[in-house]
Each structure stands twice: as structure tokens, then as C-alpha cells.
Design a protein around this nucleic acid. Structure first.
Lengths: 223, 223
DNA sequence: GCAACTTTGTGCCCGCGTTCACAAACGCTT
DNA sequence: AAGCGTTTGTGAACGCGGGCACAAAGTTGC
């Protein structure tokens, strides 16, 4: 009845953000040899409410069996398909400082179709040095390698000072999805997606809540 | 008229998440020798709308001057105070793999009262080795050092397999704010805050949007 | 000292996301 | 085959956060 090919459109952003976690939880469950889970079990493993899980999954389609639960392998496949993990995603990392090197070596990278296809650094003196079995390329080769290797995702792991120019180079080369580790807001065209990961911001938020905990002189709200 | 001490309560989470960015934008502005900014200028530097910036700041208090703007240094101080950055925050990092070492060396750590007070690894063989001028301590010293050095924030940079046990040890030692880089949902008591940073999740979300860009056979929505 | 201009602070509305409540659907037992 | 228990899928209510419009308040110029 329902169309087979990726049917659903307009999956809410909030749902998309949780799908990777569901996928990870499913992987855990599968590793334990379990082939079927209820929304309640899976939700607990993913740290959300079961109703939320079911509503999220409902945006993908009806892949559960009422009275039983979800078939682990099948659901994992459907989520992977929705996220686009059934295809290969070559990634470029720019900035081979401590962080860039750690990212290049990060094993979690390998999960779900991603792989480091090239690494770059603005310091031409580093060119040729090996990082996780890959030679560091100079920025002048960026456009060429992006084209040759079909790179669609760029990771910026440079200092803040050079992040915008590196970003411009990536966009110029045709990369439209960026993961930014530099502590600044990048300016990009509308069709480019940027996600930012900032250690400093996370620490600040933690400090805020920690402060609230230590000085509760008034206002005893739940949180 | 208005009380001087940290007056405002219940700052929305969404606002708190943006305050660090405002602080960074203010720092940039200050570096350019500017002493006063309008909400419009500052908002642009922080990548938000000016109305949003003003509403966010209104939760802290009235620190702007109508017809003029905000005094850069004063506003930075007030945001710092709201976030709790006027005090010192000793941080412990657990897991001295590639990522842990990169984090320990990360300069952005130093901003706003944070500093790495101790680093740990479950591998006792690493004990004593220097990372960013700090000797790696064995996990058996965790409780002692947390107490001695007043550590309130813990960073988990271990593999997923050991993350939960490390988390338990940190919580047991009295740490109530955690930054988790391991790809799993930690189980913690209600009074413990956990923020998670996951490269894999970010890549998945990017892949989703990238996929949507490449295959636009139907539905020409704005996004 | 007054008027015109500028910029902040905020009340109100709207849209998104989360949760609740419940009906629909499935397996199992008798 | 029919009923019972279980679990999914979803319509509806609710609450939070963002953006608009505007009043309040301050500055500048004359």
C-alpha cells in the first residue's frame, strides 16, 4: 500500500537530530543478539520518552508491528536510509593541529558510510606528512581533490583566525556541508549547511548550571 | 532601584546556549577597540537577529542605553557573571587518547575561568606521563584530586566501552557537571548535568541535509 | 528647552515540538 | 474463531521560543 521508496518528506529537525542516537541504540541492541524491541526499551536506551520515539519514527513511515515492537535490523536499515547513510560520504578535514589529527584518527568516523578522503593544512611545510595513513595536502590542491574524490562534507579544525578563509575555499570548491570546530560564526551562502561544535560554549553552559546548583539561596524550582 | 546582585532567575535554556556566543562576539568587538555597540551590530557578529539578542539580554537585566547601544566591557562583564565565569572552574579530563590529549592542549580551554586541573587515564601504565605540562593520574587518585583541587566539571574522552564506569567514578567523586565525548547516553542521577558532543551525530545530520540537496525530484520547499 | 531621531526593552502572536490520551492493529490463548 | 492483552501510530492539547510591532527612554541639534 504505502510507497516503498523514501516516501516521507519534511522530517522535523528535532527528529533528525535524534535519529543517529536511535541508530546507535539499535546497534547496541543488535550486538546483544536481540532481534525485536519495543519503543519503551529502545527509548530508554536512547534516553528519550517512548512516545517521542514513536512520533519520531512515524515521520519515517510505519515500520513497527503493533503488539510486538520493531524488528531491529529492519528499523536500523530504514533509519540509515532516511539519514542517507546507505551511500558513501567522503569527508575532508582541514587543519592538522592537535584536534584535526585526533579527528582524522577517530574511529567513530568510519560508522555509516563516512571516511576521511583527504586532509589539508594551510602550512605548506606540513604537506606530505602522514596523518592516519593519509598524506597532508596543501590548500592549493583542495578544489582538485574535492572534485576527484567526490568530497561533499568538510570539517574545519583550524584556529579561529583562518577558519573563514578555509571555509570560503571549501565552499568555492563545491562543498556545501560543513562541520565547524573553530570558535566563530562562519558566513556562508544560504545553500551551505554549517554545524558547529564548540568546547568552550559547552563548558560555559555547564558552568552556568553548576553555578545555579551551588548557590540556591532562593527559588527552589525542580531543576 | 533594581537590585545589584545577580538578580534574574530562570534564564531560558535557549538563551543560555547563546550567551557564550555573545561573549565571543563582544570580545571580537573589544579587540577592534570599539567601546559601544548596537544590538544590530552585535547580533550580526553573533549570527542572530537583533530582536533575539535584545530579548536574550533582557533576561539578564537592563544593561543597554536607549538611543546608544551597549557598553562593550560592561555587557561582557554582566554576561560573564550570569554564566558564572567570574569564578574559577577547575576541570578534569578523563581518557588520554588522541582526543583527550587534544582537549588538554586546547587553548580555548583557558577562556573564562576554566583550566585543566588534572588529567586521568584508566591505563595505569600511562600514569606520570606528561600531557600539556600535567602528569597523567591513575583513576585511583580521582576522588582525592577532585576534592583537593576543587574540581567541579569532568570531561569524558574515553572509548564508549569505559565511559559509563568513568562517569560513575566522577559522580561518585562529587562531580556534577559532565561533558561527554563518548558516543553513548550516560545514566546519571537527576542532579548531574551532562552535555554531549558527538562527531558522529553531527556528521549524520549533515549527511541527511546533504542528501536532501542532491535529490530534489519533488517538493521545492525553501529549505 | 524642545523637537526629531535613534535604539532599547517588551507585550503579543504564531509556529514548532513534546506530551497525553486513545483508537487501531497485531499475536496469543482458549 | 473469538476475545484478551499488548504495543504501535496519531489526533489534540499544551508550553516554549522566536519574531513583530510599538512604547519607553535617551541623545543630538538648534
Amino acid at each position: 500500500m504505502s510507497a516503498d521508496p523514501a516516501i516521507r518528506r519534511d522530517i522535523p529537525d528535532a527528529t533528525v537530530a535524534r535519529l543517529p542516537e536511535y541508530l546507535r541504540a539499535l546497534s547496541d541492541v543488535a550486538d546483544r543478539g536481540i532481534s525485536s524491541v519495543s519503543s519503551e526499551e529502545l527509548a530508554q536506551a536512547a534516553g528519550v520518552r517512548s512516545t517521542q520515539l514513536r512520533k519520531d519514527l512515524s515521520h519515517l513511515g510505519s515500520y513497527g508491528i503493533r503488539g510486538v515492537g520493531y524488528e531491529v535490523e529492519h528499523l536500523a536499515l530504514e533509519i540509515s536510509r532516511a539519514l542517507g547513510l546507505t551511500q558513501d560520504w567522503p569527508v575532508a578535514i582541514v587543519g592538522m593541529g592537535n584536534l584535526g589529527r585526533a579527528l582524522a584518527a577517530y574511529s567513530g568516523f568510519a560508522t555509516g558510510g563516512f571516511h576521511v578522503a583527504a586532509v589539508f593544512d594551510e602550512d605548506a611545510a606540513l604537506a606530505g606528512a602522514l596523518v592516519a595513513d593519509l598524506p597532508i595536502s596543501p590548500m592549493t590542491d583542495l578544489a582538485l581533490l574535492v572534485r576527484e574524490r567526490g568530497i561533499t562534507i568538510g570539517v574545519i579544525a583550524t584556529p579561529a583566525a583562518s577558519a573563514q578563509s578555509v571555509c570560503n575555499a571549501l565552499v568555492e570548491a563545491g562543498v556545501r556541508s560543513l562541520l565547524n570546530f573553530a570558535p566563530l560564526v562562519l558566513v556562508v551562502p544560504d545553500d551551505v549547511d554549517v554545524r558547529r561544535v564548540d568546547l568552550s560554549t559547552e563548558l560555559h553552559v555547564l558552568a552556568f548550571h553548576e553555578q545555579r546548583k551551588s548557590l540556591p539561596p532562593e527559588l527552589g524550582v525542580a531543576r
